[in-house]
Design a protein around this nucleic acid. Structure first.
Length: 484
RNA sequence: GGCCCGGUGGUCAAGAGGUUAAGACACUGCCCUUUCAAGGCGGUAACACGAGUUCAAUUCUCGUCCGGGUCACCA
């Protein structure tokens, strides 16, 4: 068999923001294709007009773009297999369903929703009873012609079993008796997801179907459809689910109640796209050499299907945060300044402070961008603080010695001609040396006075420098007053 | 409930019939230090259980238990 070019597709429904589970599926589909020199296709599945959300398609484009997952074909860029929006393909599906009816592999079902609901209530897990499966052709045609609403169902085999191969889970067999006569075309004329999926995947030449393992049990239904049409069955790659921790300690498929689970949310909360992608790439897949940090190109090179695991993975915000911090630390100072700028501006406004200096003390300490305003707010406006802050055991400072120490620093700094990092540093360090004190003993009171916080990004020297001489001395003076 | 899938530290995970059962996150100890971080060096912690196969099973088989998924005119 000649090697066909690998083609995968990401087929989201425009129903809102992009969940990390979907994002991860998109990523893997992209990686499956790209790691084998194939194409990655974007297809919008909007057959459910009731759940359609305005603007959701744009979110998909935006998310994919920010995540660095680029498609080769799609609604926005076209391609040879269009249209790429299911609603625009609507007319394609009915003929296929009709063909199955003509071949006796499908039939019209005229049952009302009420009847079907009744069936479900009668027996637990009991589904459709194939009531319309054997309506004679003439009768069916006449009913349809009379305008009676109907759906089209596929005739499932009554006995035997269906087996399929999954690239991750291996061989899976399901008894056909478990399968219902699935609906292909809904009353509104639209195809069901399952049906449209098969038709689209086939007509778009998709070779590898990558999706979450929640589809594992419905895969036989897909295969029966491929078989009914006599089409080649694609390679199935089912992905282990991403789970979230429930409040009661249990776990379940990751969803909104587990917190921020969409790319948008995470991004808004200060996680970098690269970090999100890197993290979810490793949720369910492991490289041969255990590398942790990956660029997208590296992922493409390292990715292989046999590294995909079978067991579900719990989404771990701690690890995501670690990745985020790694990416932040790896930025150039300029890059970090730019990504931090909105947050810095939010906290510091037009305080006139040198943002690049502020960014510099932040870069090694920030793990999530949204922490920034809280971390630097004290620079713009000193918070109220308790004089107890001047007490620090490790630095050997007490309420008794703090006034003198602070006074000492104040005088020395006042005399300083140039106000830059080195000058301040030398000034305070030599002050400590001359008085036989630990550096920390001198630095602690100064830092507290100037910041009003027990914990700050950067030490006394950095904060003094950023604040400038006038503001620094002003704050120190207030500190002295507070101590007296 | 039926069916399907899974089960290595708290989390992500590598692994192989014989290993001191990797690594990362988290937690934690020490060092460094101008607070906090970052960085460096350590530490605690795992093969769900019971049979079987085998000289040898965490690894293969079966059962049990536990967990998850799925059973729509949703996707």
């Amino acid at each position: 068999m000649a090697d066909k070019k690998v083609r995968t597709r990401y087929a989201p429904s425009p129903t809102g923001s992009m969940h990390v589970g979907n994002l991860r599926t998109a990523l893997y589909e992209f990686l499956v294709a790209k790691s084998q020199g194939g194409d990655f296709v974007l297809r919008i599945e909007d057959t459910d007009r009731e759940r359609y959300v305005e603007g959701a398609v744009d979110i998909i484009y935006k998310t994919l773009k920010e995540a660095g997952i680029t498609h080769d074909e799609g609604p926005d860029i076209g391609g040879e297999h269009g249209p790429y929006v299911q609603s625009e393909r609507k007319d394609m599906y009915l003929p296929y369903a009709q063909r199955l009816i003509d071949e006796g592999k499908a039939y019209r079902c005229f049952c009302s929703k009420e009847r079907l609901e009744g069936l479900q209530q009668e027996s637990v897990g009991g589904g459709y009873d194939r009531h319309c499966r054997d309506i004679p052709k003439e009768e069916s045609d006449a009913l349809a012609a009379s305008g009676a609403p109907f759906v089209i169902r596929q005739k499932m085999p009554l006995d035997g079993s269906t087996t399929f191969e999954d690239a991750v889970y291996g061989s899976i067999t399901v008894e056909n008796s478990e399968l219902q006569d699935q609906i292909l075309i809904k009353t509104d004329g639209y195809p069901t997801y399952n049906f449209a999926n098969v038709i689209d995947d086939h007509t778009m030449g998709i070779t590898h179907v990558v999706r979450g393992s929640e589809y594992l049990s419905s895969t036989p239904k897909y295969n029966l459809l491929y078989e009914a049409f006599g089409w080649d069955i694609p390679t199935y790659i089912h992905l282990p689910l991403i789970m979230g921790k429930d409040e009661d300690g249990g776990v379940s498929k990751l969803s909104k109640r587990h917190g921020s689970t969409s790319f948008e949310d995470l991004s808004r909360e200060g996680y970098l796209p690269e970090a999100i992608i890197n993290y979810i790439a490793l949720l369910g897949w492991c490289p041969k050499d255990n590398q942790e940090i990956f660029t997208m190109d590296e992922l493409i090179k390292a990715f292989s299907i046999d590294g995909i695991s079978k067991s579900p993975a719990i989404f771990d915000y701690d690890k995501l945060e670690w990745f985020n911090a790694e990416y932040i630390k790896a930025m150039t100072p300029e890059q970090f300044l730019e990504t931090a700028r909105p947050y810095l501006t939010q906290a510091l406004g037009d305080s006139g402070l040198d943002l690049s200096k502020v960014a510099a003390i932040l870069q090694q300490r920030v793990t999530v961008l949204t922490q920034i305003p809280d971390m630097v707010g004290f620079l713009a406006k000193q918070p109220e603080y308790d004089k107890e802050l001047f007490v620090n055991k490790k630095s050997k400072t007490t309420l008794e010695n703090a006034p003198q120490l602070l006074r000492m620093s104040y005088d020395a700094l006042s005399a300083l001609k140039s106000w830059d990092h080195d000058s301040i540093h030398d000034c305070l360090i030599s002050l400590a040396a001359e008085n036989g004190l630990k550096n920390g003993t001198v630095m602690w009171p100064a830092r507290i006075a100037v910041s009003g916080k027990a914990v700050t990004p950067g030490g006394a020297i950095e904060i003094l420098e950023i604040l400038g001489k006038e503001e620094s001395l002003g704050r120190m003076k207030k500190g002295l007053e507070k101590l007296s």
